[in-house]
């Protein structure tokens, strides 16, 4: 199967790889997995007010999973929580030209964004 140029670009030069301080009250962490293939993805956001000022990810998975999470972090940086929450996996599929067998990778990225946002909101609510 051939990867699109955009997938290859994100795969060979992933953006925003790394970690943020999980314990910080301004950081939301989402860890999600794809049982279809055993891929696992961690996505973290740093929030100021209601805006995402930084995002980091760490993905163990195929090229499409890495590219999907790399793209997701690029897209959510600078967005408000509400805007980021509206990102759909289909937009990731379109941007990266993912083939049907790799659609679950984009679902994983969407789930990771939502999980990180929900973790941040939970932290804030319990603070």
């Amino acid at each position: 199967m051939a990867y699109s140029d955009k997938v290859l670009d994100h795969y060979s030069n992933p953006r925003n790889v790394g970690s943020l301080d999980k314990g910080s009250k301004d950081v939301g962490t989402g860890v999600v997995g794809a049982p279809e293939c055993g891929d696992v993805m961690k996505l973290q956001i740093q929030v100021e007010g209601d805006r995402i000022v930084d995002a980091k990810f760490k993905t163990f998975g195929c090229g499409s999973a890495i590219a999907s999470s790399s793209l997701a972090t690029e897209w959510i940086k600078g967005k408000t929580l509400d805007e980021a929450e509206k990102i759909k996996n289909t937009e990731i599929v379109e941007e990266l030209s993912l083939p049907p067998v790799k659609i679950h990778c984009s679902v994983l990225a969407e789930d990771a964004i939502k999980a990180a946002i929900s973790d941040f909101k939970n932290k804030k609510a319990s603070a």
Binding site: V31, G33, G38
Partner: peptide
């Protein structure tokens, strides 16, 4: 999520 953290 504890399981997935372990997988990480």
């Amino acid at each position: 999520s504890e399981f997935l953290a372990e997988v990480m």
